[in-house]
Amino acid sequence: MATPSMLLLLADGRFPAGAHAHSCGLEAAVAAGRVTDLATLGEYLRGRLATAGLVAAAFAAAACRVAGSDHTTPVRPPPMDTDLTRPGQRRRATLVLLDAELDARTVSPAQRAVSRRQGRALLRAGREIWPGDIFAGLPATPGGPHQPLVLGLVGAAARLDPAQVATVAAHATVTGSASAAVRLLGLDPYQVQALLVRLAAACDAVAARAARAAEGAPHRLPAATAALADIHAEAHATWEVRLFAS
C-alpha cells in the first residue's frame, strides 16, 4: 500500500499531467450562463461528481485492480489471436475491454478526445516517474488510452490500492473545475475551497461506491451520464478562442 505522501502527490493538481489546462466542462457552462456564482458552482460540482466522477473513479479503480493480476478473466471473449496463457495477456485483454466500455459511456466525441489526450499526458508522466512494464498492457487505441485507465495503472505503479485510486479520481473531478472557477468567475478562492470541504463527504462516498463497483465485470461498471455536459463539450470544441482545452 502507498504511503500517505504518495497518495497526496498523485491527488495534487500540480502533478505534471496537464490537468491545469482543463476546466472539465466548466468554461462552457459559464458561457451558457448555467454557472454564475458559488451556489451554482456547487450544484455543478455535485452533478459532475455523481456522473463523470463516479464513472472515472470506477474505471480507474478497475484498471488499478487488474494492473498486476494475470489471473483476471475477461468477461467477454478476447480476440481470437489472444493467447491467455502468456504472461500479461489476461491483463491486456481486460484493459482492452475497460477501454471499450469507457468509450461506449463517453457519448460526446469531444469528451472522448479530451479523455484520450489527458491519458497520453498522464502516461508520459507515469512512464517517466515509474519506468517499467506496468503500462505495457494498455490498448494501442487511436488517440491513446482513456485517462482513467492510465490513472489506474499509475496508481498501481505508486502502490495505491483501487479504493485509493478511486479517491484520487473522484477528487480530481471536482478540484479541476473548482480551480477553473476562480479564474473564470473571479470567485473568492477561500470560499471555493470551503465549498470543496463541504463536498468532501460526497466525494468519499462516490469513491467508495466506485471501488465496490470496480470489483465486478467491465460491462457492469457505472454508466452515469449528463446530456447537457455532452452538449457543452461539443460546443466548446468549436470555439476559436477559449481559456481552457476543455
Score class of each variant (00 low, 15 high):
residue 140 A to H: 10
residue 166 A to F: 11
residue 119 G to T: 03
residue 58 A to Y: 02
residue 158 A to G: 12
residue 165 V to C: 15
residue 136 A to P: 02
residue 96 V to D: 11
residue 91 R to M: 03
residue 79 P to W: 14
residue 155 G to R: 07
residue 162 P to S: 00
residue 59 F to H: 09
residue 159 R to H: 14
residue 159 R to C: 04
residue 107 V to L: 14
residue 177 S to K: 05
residue 88 G to I: 01
residue 106 T to Q: 02
residue 80 M to E: 12
residue 175 T to S: 15
residue 61 A to V: 04
residue 62 A to F: 04
residue 149 L to T: 12
residue 150 V to Y: 00
residue 160 L to M: 05
residue 167 T to I: 05
residue 152 G to I: 02
residue 82 T to N: 08
residue 126 G to V: 07
residue 110 A to E: 10
residue 104 A to K: 08
residue 104 A to P: 12
residue 86 R to V: 04
residue 81 D to H: 04
residue 142 P to G: 01
residue 120 R to D: 05
residue 154 V to L: 15
residue 88 G to V: 05
residue 132 G to P: 11
residue 163 A to M: 10
residue 161 D to N: 14
residue 60 A to V: 05
residue 177 S to C: 11
residue 73 T to Q: 11
residue 147 Q to M: 03
residue 75 V to E: 08
residue 171 H to P: 08
residue 135 F to V: 10
residue 134 I to Q: 03
residue 87 P to V: 00
residue 110 A to W: 06
residue 155 G to I: 06
residue 140 A to P: 11
residue 58 A to N: 00
residue 176 G to R: 01
residue 95 L to K: 01
residue 158 A to V: 13
residue 144 G to A: 10
residue 61 A to M: 04
residue 122 L to N: 02
residue 177 S to H: 07
residue 134 I to T: 00
residue 64 C to H: 03
residue 175 T to I: 15
residue 68 G to S: 13
residue 76 R to S: 01
residue 101 E to C: 07
residue 75 V to S: 06
residue 172 A to R: 15
residue 116 R to G: 02
residue 108 S to M: 05
residue 162 P to Q: 06
residue 63 A to L: 12
residue 67 A to W: 00
residue 100 A to Y: 12
residue 94 T to Q: 03
residue 73 T to A: 05
residue 105 R to S: 11
residue 117 R to M: 12
residue 69 S to L: 08
residue 77 P to I: 03
residue 62 A to Q: 07
residue 136 A to R: 06
residue 58 A to E: 00
residue 111 Q to E: 12
residue 175 T to Y: 14
residue 60 A to C: 10
residue 124 R to S: 05
residue 70 D to T: 03
residue 99 D to C: 07
residue 95 L to F: 00
residue 166 A to C: 09
residue 176 G to E: 02
